[in-house]
Amino acid sequence: MNRLSPRLVGALLLPMLLGAGVSVQADEAAADGEERDIVRIAVDVPYPPMEYRTPEGELTGFDIDLGNALCERAQFECTWVVQNWDGIIPGLMARKYDAIMSSMRITEARSRRVLFTEPYALSPKVWVARQGRDIDIADRAGLKELNVGVQRGTTQDRYVTERYGDVLDIRRYATADDVAVDMQSGRLDLAFLNYPVALDTLQITRPESDFTQLGPRINSPQSIFGKGNAIAVRPYDRALAEAFNRALDDVYRDGTFERLMQRYFDYDIRPPSRD
């Protein structure tokens, strides 16, 4: 029988524990509600123009600029963490970061898990098809045999699944960019996208674009689309949410919000509560 001594097992175990390489850091406000200095904010990229990366790898976009402005007001030192959409809420709960600012809609299902700030923007959704394709969204029978691309787990996904699940072939992608790419390749007949994203990636308003908007922009029902985009924090981080809310009031009042909005959009994205 071939036996190994316990000491040998211990000797093998030790470097493993040392080599695990976890970074230990104190979390200033894990439970005591004290004001924290460092706030880590998660975004899912690419989601232009809300959040995306330049070819050099730098993060930019409306959410990033607004987030930095808010952090300045609230005197936080903010760092941005890139996180896939699929794991963005579990990551928050797992304390991989302290907040999510990634065009996240306030919805009932999400509200059960996270605490939202006041909405800071409301970006409508839109149906997109290739220029010249004769598709009528209202004509349900005519949608049979067609497919639609959405980003998995978004409010768009839910809307299409609940309203059109029985007629359209729904293809769910990990990112909104993947949806746009497959519109361009011609694999998708339809896409249901966030309006700013559709403008930026498929250029639906430009006359020379291959793609066009179908029907009006969609913002209802509120049971699916919620009141607007907000920053999400862990349910017990009330102080953090309040600080963001105060900073939001400030940027609306002093015109910073409008300046940023005009940099990225030629239409109004203010939520109804701020009109």
């Binding site: 959409w85 699929d86 794991g87 809420i89 579990p90 299902a109 998995r152 787990g153």
Partner: peptide, 11 residues
């Protein structure tokens, strides 16, 4: 699994 996960946010 991805779909269920993305829908209910619990991995």
């Amino acid at each position: 699994a991805y779909y269920v996960y993305a829908r209910f946010y619990s991995p």
